[in-house]
């Protein structure tokens, strides 16, 4: 896929709560094709302590409004600067980067499960919307530390049934996603997951034990985002591969995780 570098205009920058913002961007040209699971490299200007672009997953593309959504967790100075962007300001992106989630051809409509944790739910919204538009009826299982960390629930509900876990039990079932009762009640044929590393390991272990194909979206530290620097590598059955070009989506069969 052809990659681009261009300036985008901030249409909206919504602070979801103290730690997250939803940045909606647009541009004059029609947004080119972007696949679920792909990401963009966001340039951050004027940040004292950061230097590199920030890799952020495509959260959603609103084709009617020609908008790209980025769901951003405020972690350091780079992302905090992005949260301060005002409507009308511009931000430079490299896009679309990375591979994508694979959409299986031979399963029942209802048997795809998308498991997200924290800000890792971001790429699953766009994946869910794409699955729905292709006739699937995806199920979402979203985990968070507390109720306030559950992000964009009403958006997910547009594309499928949503189950929730929180660590304090104040929303949905108490505990982790891998303990949710839905996993015992129903068999799934394909699992996609993105979230904190311990969560993805637990989901991958569950999928492997249950014999369910599973794709994870990794968030390795990255510099260039286009396969030039070889910094973001993951050790796989094929050796060190760049998460930015051969990922971020990787089938668990290929990973060398101890699961």
């Amino acid at each position: 896929m052809k990659k681009y570098a261009s300036d985008w205009k901030v249409v909206e920058n919504i602070r979801l709560h103290s730690n997250y913002c939803l940045l909606k961007l647009s541009m004059d040209a029609v947004i080119p094709e972007m696949l679920p699971g792909q990401f963009v490299q966001v340039r951050v200007d004027g940040s004292q302590t950061t230097f590199l672009r920030r890799p952020i997953s495509v959260n959603y593309i609103d084709r009617n409004k020609n908008e790209l959504w980025l769901l951003i967790q405020l972690v350091g100075d780079g992302t905090r600067n992005l949260a301060k962007l005002q409507i009308g300001e511009t931000v430079n992106l490299l896009y679309p980067l990375g591979n994508s989630f694979s959409i299986p051809k031979t399963i029942n409509d209802d048997n795809v499960l998308l498991i997200g944790g924290g800000v890792g739910v971001a790429p699953l919204l766009y994946l869910g919307s794409q699955l729905t538009s292709q006739g699937y009826n995806p199920t979402f299982l979203l985990g968070a530390r507390s109720r306030k960390d559950l992000l964009l629930l009403e958006e997910f509900q547009k594309y499928g049934e949503v189950f929730v876990t929180t660590e304090d039990g104040k929303s949905g079932e108490k505990g982790y996603v891998t303990n949710h009762s839905i996993l015992k009640k129903k068999h799934y044929d394909f699992i996609y997951t993105c979230g904190p590393s311990p969560m993805m390991h637990a989901v991958a272990a569950y999928a492997k034990q249950s014999g369910i194909p599973c794709e994870v979206s990794l968030e390795n530290l990255m510099a260039c985002g286009i396969g030039a620097c070889l910094c973001c590598v993951e050790n796989t059955t094929e050796g060190h591969i760049c998460v930015c070009t051969e990922g971020p989506v990787i089938n668990i069969e290929k990973l060398k995780w101890q699961i």
């Binding site: 950061t50 230097f51 390795n220 530290l221 990255m222 510099a223 050790n235």
Partner: peptide, 13 residues
């Protein structure tokens, strides 16, 4: 991995 660390105005690889 990890092979990279961002530093003020630079990076380590």
């Amino acid at each position: 991995y990890p092979r990279m660390a961002e530093t003020p105005s630079g990076m380590l690889n």
